[in-house]
Design a protein around this nucleic acid. Structure first.
Lengths: 201, 201
DNA sequence: TGTACATCAGTGAACGCGCGTTCACTGATGTAC
DNA sequence: TGTACATCAGTGAACGCGCGTTCACTGATGTAC
């Protein structure tokens, strides 16, 4: 992989990295094929070879995000498995928020569907797998912890809570009402939830 | 307010309505000063008179959204007041979701801060007032219902849950896992919450 | 009732810009023989 | 080891487009006297 050959060698990944940089530095609205090419040090028409068009580039970027997202949550879940289903779910929630902070550009693109093709099968499968980790974790809970509620609704509640927390935080809305940082708020919210579902502990 | 005078008479509002149409039909990325002017039947440079620049237009549009949002939640809260704090909070939650469906274009713009000026004092005050309605409602709950949790965290949890539900729904992510419609899911999630906080009822 | 004038709202031509996409091309690579 | 050739990755010129913004302007309105 010499530096200055005619063939880049890893242009596809380099372009996805470039998108990451653009979003991080200038926001998602600033992403363009030409700017991505510029950052990858390649002619402006090169990206079309790998992604077809702009939507293709953003779709691939979002799919990459969901893959990493899923991996991180699965890793966290497995690591917390010995603590039981509650610890497992909590670890996933924390990872959900951590991902949104550490990979903010990815997180943004994953949930700004106007730039990517929502019907792309690769993207759909990636997102499905990622969220599946969270949803499965709720299903593993002791039914008694659900208080008779349907598992699907319990899963949606957990998902929505953690997702809402992440997006409200990143949009700067939560900071209008408190000085607490995200992890402190998350702890409070998660404990609240545990206090409700398992007060006997 | 005759139709074909030189002066429009209500151009400011007409332009905001135009933005609403653009987002509803073509998505938020399609908004431009020129397209808004076109839809309002006015020369392309007219919008600058009222909003200065594109950010000004989007900021005014988002602020208008938060005003309506706040009014709707306050109206719903007051209407449900006789039912007590729990009913009040629930009515707000339902209204939050209803707003996101009935005024989807506004909802989108309000939470896509890359287009508007987050430091605009009018916008900040509008959003603060709107969310204040929800946050206040949580503070009115009987402390016993909070199970010893901090009111701030309980408020954040409610806010995040309902906001996450709205955004995940509109991004089409929830539909990947269930055929249920939004109001049915919302009912399930809210009942879950009530079942946890007030199982004695 | 009439006139002068200030103010405001909207016009239209012009500018420069960055963009997405197309297309004939060229340089590098790998494989068959 | 050498050569011919197919394939693939990336180039660079060109196109047309819609955009935001500026600016001198003009038409309408309201007010003072």
């Amino acid at each position: 992989m010499t530096a200055d050959t005619y063939h880049h060698g890893n242009l596809r990944n380099a372009l996805l990295d470039a998108v990451d940089g653009i979003i991080g530095e200038e926001g998602i609205a600033a992403v363009s094929l030409r700017e991505a090419a510029r950052r990858a040090g390649v002619s402006h028409s090169a990206p079309a070879h790998h992604f077809g068009d702009k939507t293709g580039l953003m779709t691939a970027y979002a799919a990459r995000g969901f893959d990493l997202f899923g991996e991180m949550m699965r890793g966290a879940a497995d690591g917390a498995a010995p603590g039981g289903p509650q610890a497992r779910l909590r670890a996933i929630g924390i990872t959900y928020l951590r991902f949104s902070v550490e990979h903010r550009a990815l997180f943004e693109a994953m949930f700004r569907p106007e730039f990517s093709d929502p019907d792309d099968p690769v993207l759909r499968e990636s997102s499905r797998r990622a969220f599946g980790v969270l949803l499965e974790a709720v299903e593993r809970l002791d039914p008694a912890d659900l208080g008779g509620a349907e598992p699907l609704h319990a899963a949606m509640a957990s998902w929505a809570t953690v997702h809402g927390l992440a997006t409200l935080w990143h949009d700067g809305l939560i900071a209008q009402f408190t000085d607490e940082d995200l992890s402190s708020i998350a702890t409070g919210v998660f404990d609240l939830d545990r206090g409700r579902t398992a007060p006997q502990e």
